[in-house]
Design a protein around this nucleic acid. Sequence first.
DNA 1: TACAATGTTTTAAG
DNA 2: CCTTAAAACATTGT
Length: 269
Amino acid sequence: MPELAEVEFYRKQWGRGLQRKILAVQLNAAKKIFRGTDVAALRKTLRGSTLLGSEAHGKQMLFRFSKGGWVGIHLGMTGELRIGPAAAVALKHDHFVLRQGRHSLVFSDPRQFGRVLFHRGKTQPPWWRDRPAEILSLQFTRTFMEQFLSRRGRAPIKAVLLMQSGFPGIGNWMADEILWQSKIHPSRPAGRLRPEETKKLHAKIQSVSRVSLRTVGKNDGDLPKSWLFHHRWENGGHCPVDGTALRRAQIGGRTTCWCPSCQKQRTGV
DNA sequence: TACAATGTTTTAAG
DNA sequence: CCTTAAAACATTGT
């Protein structure tokens, strides 16, 4: 489920475990979420360490522990973080559980497209450096965005919005929402947008991110009623702006929803 | 049954 | 080396 705001929501779930010691590490090293990770080092370092802090960047999360332990978590398509009672029994897809005196910190992921990374050291892990500008940072300028679009000028704008190296945190529903609010057809080549369109796109990327970070809770029910979000999976759904029947198709490898009336295939005429 | 699911990564081709 | 498109990954639900 997790895009920008959901990732932030899940990161906070482990907040009650801050400043508390990890008494035991429970994991199944054979699971795909640990691919390429030194599980033995993770176990050794985290046991007896204290959870000191966390941050999110796009869809990535980083948890910092005492004793120089750093754990990176990506939730993939179906991952989630939970906190439960200390003695909570691990469920079928709870592949990574940190036991504390009062709580259990759980990473659950049925589909296992998610990932757990580990690093030991004084400073941040190498895989946490050189990250793209966050969407709500000052570095995420329109100029930067336009350069990113023109370098992938022949790919559909929908596919480009999903690239984490340019738009960290944006996923399938956010991309559809942003394009719909910007009145840009998802198939339009990224390098062919007019200046007023890229200006609007940049503004909507930021506003959709800001509003969802402010409102997303356990479910997504409190996103603005006016958004496409509430209609994009309805069969026979209609555009909340003009009532046109919404369309769905595979664009950029993902199911994409748009309003054929608000979002025109070609500009001009 | 077959297909699709709020995501990357790999592979191949241009 | 860069961009683009498609398949692969593992599991569940419709």
